[in-house]
């Protein structure tokens, strides 16, 4: 980890022993308790406790390498694919521990969907991209229903009008922003409860970004959304709560307004005022 230059940057500030702000919410959809994550011997997440509120957008911010993606990927067990990754503590979805050995990751990932930093449509048609999830989970009971699911997913992802005439052309032939919206459509096609987004706009231009942000705002009435972002403005625009990570610790969490106007911890303050990060 590039901890050396980072600690150099803010020698004045120290990591807090406990997270500043209220990690709990009234109606949590997901709860993380004392989560530690290790890659081999290296600790990437250190004792993080956090609630993710139902039908809320929460954004994770923090300097590069602080563990935002790592923590996000714990929420739908995508870290299982990394051999050296080890997780302790408890993460629950609707009160049920998702790391329980009895839990099957397949339905879990259907309930907690994910959108990645780089748009990654399958090299298949636009239709098949969106239909893939419903197909493998057997969500649609008929062909018509599947068509409807695809249409409404693309509609909600704000892509329908652009692609309705070329549903059977490859998804990889779309522009970057369209591809990302296709990936969002693919994620919502399986009707997840929670959507995890890891820097979904980092590869997009401002117009595509604005579209996705609009989309997030719309989706937040139905879904619980966790978004990782490097853009403070984006966090401020789309999220109700914001969590600030640093060196694997959750430094501060609170309502987005409060975090950006009146941060409690000095490190948070330094970060959002652009003094480092």
């Amino acid at each position: 980890m590039n901890s050396a230059d980072q600690s150099h940057n803010f020698a004045t500030a120290g990591l807090p022993a406990e997270t500043v702000g209220d990690v709990h919410v009234d109606h949590p959809r997901m709860t993380a308790r004392n989560v530690d994550v290790f890659y081999g011997d290296k600790q990437a997440i250190d004792n993080v406790t956090l609630d993710i509120g139902e039908k809320q957008v929460i954004s994770f911010i923090g300097p590069s390498g602080c563990g935002k993606s790592t923590f996000l990927r714990c929420l739908n067990r995508m870290n299982d694919t990394i051999d050296i990754c080890r997780i302790t503590g408890e993460i629950a979805l609707d009160g049920q521990n998702i790391y329980d050995p009895k839990i099957d990751v397949v339905p879990l990932r259907a309930r907690v969907g994910m959108v990645f930093q780089k748009p990654n449509p399958f090299p298949k048609s636009i239709f098949d991209n969106v239909a893939y999830g419903p197909r493998i989970h057997g969500i649609a009971t008929s062909k018509d229903e599947l068509n409807d699911i695809v249409e409404s997913s693309l509609e909600r992802a704000g892509l329908w009008n652009e692609v309705k005439d070329r549903l059977h052309q490859p998804g990889t032939g779309l522009s970057g922003g369209q591809q990302q919206r296709l990936c969002i459509a693919r994620a919502i096609a399986v009707s997840p409860e929670v959507i995890l987004m890891d820097e979904p706009c980092s590869a997009l231009d401002p117009i595509a970004t604005a579209k996705i942000e609009e989309l997030i705002a719309e989706l937040s009435s139905e879904y619980t959304i966790v978004i990782v972002t490097h853009s403070m403005q984006q966090a401020a625009r789309v999220s109700q709560r914001t969590a600030y990570f640093h060196l694997g610790k959750l430094v501060e969490v609170g309502n987005t307004d409060q975090i950006f106007t009146n941060p409690q911890h000095e490190m948070t303050n330094n970060y959002i005022t652009g003094r480092f990060g």
Partner: peptide, 21 residues
Amino acid sequence: PPSIRDAALGVGASRMQTMLH
């Protein structure tokens, strides 16, 4: 590319399905 695997796993495909599909 691993991103394709991530994409499939991310929508809830099993490892077997990710491989075969």
